[in-house]
């Protein structure tokens, strides 16, 4: 299948529903395995930090959730662009189903950051550029959720959300580079593309495993929610009726 064919096929929610069943389970199984290994490794095997002791271990939840909060938003931005330009049904479903996941990840990153910040910095919350831009991300997610509920007509709601999602992407580089552009209390990035991580392998390997585990969890969550959304929106079509009646399509 060429890329162009794949692109055309994506226009059909029915096709996506038929091929995606196994992907959901595969992502789910991978996520479970990676998260169990990464979490056990990070919490029980990895050495404590020389300054923070054991409280640094919150990094194994904080960093993956913060990365996923931003990745999920980037996916929504891309889906918003596809919806606005190509009017693809599936893009609107991605836009709608990613919001709760991204919102939870952002909230989790903010919460774990506050819990870590109290013993390490001495404050639950500081209004520096990193924490504030992350809070803006949470508000963007809440805004997207509210906007969809507020507009009764599905198509109009989809386009309005797409515009908000696409414009909100501007916030992502601000979050990423806030620690480099301004003086902040939040430290610089742990993982950089151009340098080796500023921690030894026995500390960053479990973190990497957990980041991959979070990505797989996102995959499983997205596929599962998308399949439900397809059934919900296409429930009037012949193929869904047939599927519900017990037939296989």
């Amino acid at each position: 299948m060429t890329l162009k064919e794949f692109w055309h096929r994506l226009g059909s929610p029915r096709w996506f529903y038929q091929i995606s069943g196994h992907f959901g389970w595969a992502f789910g199984a991978l996520a479970l395995g990676l998260l169990v290994i990464g979490t056990f490794w990070g919490l029980a095997v990895a050495p404590p930090d020389y300054q923070q002791g054991n409280s640094f271990r919150i990094i194994y939840v904080h960093v993956p959730s913060a990365i996923l909060a931003q990745s999920a938003y980037m996916l929504m931005g891309a889906a918003g662009l596809v919806l606005l330009v190509w009017r693809m049904k599936l893009a609107d479903m991605v836009l709608a189903t990613t919001v709760p996941f991204g919102m939870s990840m952002t909230a989790l990153a903010l919460f774990t950051g506050a819990v870590w910040g109290k013993p390490t910095w001495g404050a639950w919350w500081v209004w520096d550029a990193r924490t504030t831009s992350m809070l803006v991300l949470l508000f963007l997610y809440i805004g997207l959720y509210a906007l969809r509920q507020a507009v009764p007509r599905q198509e109009t709601a989809g386009r309005a959300c797409a515009v908000l999602a696409v414009v909100g992407v501007v916030n992502i580089p601000i979050i990423k580079y806030s620690v480099d552009w301004w003086l902040t209390l939040h430290q610089g990035a742990t993982f950089k593309l151009t340098e080796s991580p500023s921690m030894p392998p026995e500390m960053w390997l479990p973190l990497l495993v957990n980041v991959l585990g979070f990505y797989c969890f996102f995959g499983a969550n997205l596929v599962g929610r998308l399949r439900l959304e397809i059934l919900r929106r296409e429930h009037g079509t012949a193929w869904v009726q047939e599927l519900m009646a017990g037939g296989r399509t």
Binding site: V126, S198, M199
Partner: peptide, 17 residues
């Protein structure tokens, strides 16, 4: 009035220090 500690992005096990 308030003193906050700024942590950098370096993490090390105690024995390496």
């Amino acid at each position: 009035r308030e003193v906050l500690a700024k942590h950098d992005e370096t993490y090390m096990p105690p024995e390496l220090v």
